[in-house]
Simulated assay, not measured.
Amino acid sequence: MKPVWSIKQVFSNAEAIRRAVSALTEKDVYIGVPAENAGQRSGGINNAELSWLHEFGAPAAGIPARPHLLPGVEDIRNEAVKILKDAAQKALDGKENAVEPALERIGLLGQNAVRARFQNNDWPPLKDATLDAAPLKKDDEGNVIRDKKGNARRGKSRREKGRVNPLLDTGQLMKSHTHVVRKRGSA
Rank of each mutant, 00 (worst) to 15 (best):
E49P: 02
Y30C: 10
K95F: 01
A35D: 09
K148V: 04
V114P: 04
E104G: 03
Q119N: 13
A133G: 12
E79L: 06
Y30Q: 15
A14I: 07
V99F: 00
D139P: 05
P135N: 08
S176C: 05
D28E: 15
R146E: 09
G185M: 06
R18C: 02
L126T: 01
A102D: 02
N97R: 13
R158T: 00
D128E: 13
I17V: 15
D93C: 05
L131E: 02
K148N: 14
P124I: 06
G39C: 09
A133K: 10
A80K: 00
I145R: 06
A60V: 14
G162M: 10
G39A: 10
K90F: 00
D140L: 03
L70V: 15
W5R: 15
R184E: 13
T170M: 05
A61L: 10
D75W: 02
N121F: 08
N97W: 04
R105I: 03
A58H: 12
R182C: 06
K90S: 08
P101G: 01
P101M: 02
V114L: 02
D128I: 06
E100T: 14
R66E: 00
G142N: 04
I63F: 12
L53D: 09
E160C: 04
V21K: 13
G62E: 08
N46H: 14
V4M: 11
D86I: 02
N46D: 15
I31D: 07
A102N: 00
R163W: 11
Q111E: 11
V33I: 13
E26D: 14
A102Q: 08
A60Q: 14
K149E: 11
L167K: 00
E104T: 05
G185W: 01
A58W: 12
L168V: 01
